[in-house]
Amino acid sequence: MSLFTRNVQRFCLFLVVVLPLVGLNWTVAKADEARQLVIRGSERTAGVVYKLWYISDGRYPISRDRMAELNESLIDLSIQELDNRYNTAIQTPPSNEVGEVVVSLKEGAYYIREVSERNWKYAPLVINFPFDNRSAENVVTVKKWPDNGSVLLTKWGFDDKNESNPRLLDEVEFQLYRVGDLKPLRFNHQGQLSTDINDNTTLTTDDNGQIYVQNLPSGDYYFKEVKAHLGYILLNDNISVKVNGTNIVKVIAKNYKKTPPPPPSYPKRPPLPSTGETKLIIGGLGVILIVLALYGTYRSKKK
């Protein structure tokens, strides 16, 4: 076999063995690239942090109706409750100066929520990942949570039902419920609706007798008073509130002073009973008076 023939055989062997390996490496690289998810904020805000929970539960991809259903059911859960429900979660680094962050994910369905500490947030959403197995890059754009409604409650106190001597009451505690829910809503220190389990469910009137809560989606709510101002009667009736759009709903709550207890009454002392001893005393006094009168008459005649 000539040297030329042997070289041709070696070259063909190279093509048969090496080229498939190159193609396999290229395919793996494409697959790895396809597992990169880009989260892009519509407001191009830097420093935004997201958390993604793997929610596939054996079903992937999930339908659009199922996505909407999951998003609605998960929106009220706290971060801690989501962590307890789903074992796999990933927190992203802060977004860059153009509002983007890249995260590597395995195939499946995910729930994405912003976990940054800000006055406004991007709306959470459920996605299938990857969107398209043929795509090298998957980009999801998160949009600013729509502006929701606010409620301003003012607490007045009165001396009586005639509403005399009005005053604003501080240190009155309420809880706010969404109609149909068994648990009160949570709010952060800025009065923003929160899903963080560390935030408080109790709202307290300030020095102006007011409570101001924000970021309430449209719907029906009610305030429940849980602690009254000192000296006032606890309000037993819930205060209904209807939030619609971005308006500030103003409500007034009233308390009345407790009625002071009546002064203690003591029983009257019964009169002394009429007995024979009393008659004897009166008779004795009469005899004494008669004797004194006779003695006076006797002395007068003697003189």
Rank of each mutant, 00 (worst) to 15 (best):
G108M: 00
S104A: 13
V140W: 01
E117F: 09
N133C: 03
F129Q: 00
V140M: 09
E97W: 12
W120H: 02
V101C: 08
P124M: 10
P93G: 11
W120G: 04
E100V: 12
N128G: 02
Y111N: 01
V98R: 12
F129L: 05
Y122G: 14
S95K: 04
Y111D: 03
N96Y: 10
L105Y: 08
W120M: 02
E107T: 08
W120Q: 08
T141F: 14
K106Y: 00
V101H: 10
G99V: 04
P94D: 04
D132I: 06
I127H: 09
K121S: 12
T141I: 15
V115G: 06
A136I: 13
K121I: 06
R134Y: 03
V126W: 04
F129T: 01
G99P: 07
N138K: 04
Y122R: 14
V101Y: 11
P94G: 01
N119P: 05
E107H: 10
E100M: 14
V140C: 06
N119G: 10
T92E: 10
P124E: 10
W120E: 12
N128K: 01
A136W: 10
R134E: 03
N128A: 01
F131D: 07
N96E: 12
E137C: 10
S104M: 07
S104G: 09
E97Q: 14
S104R: 14
Y122P: 09
Y110L: 04
V103Y: 02
N96K: 10
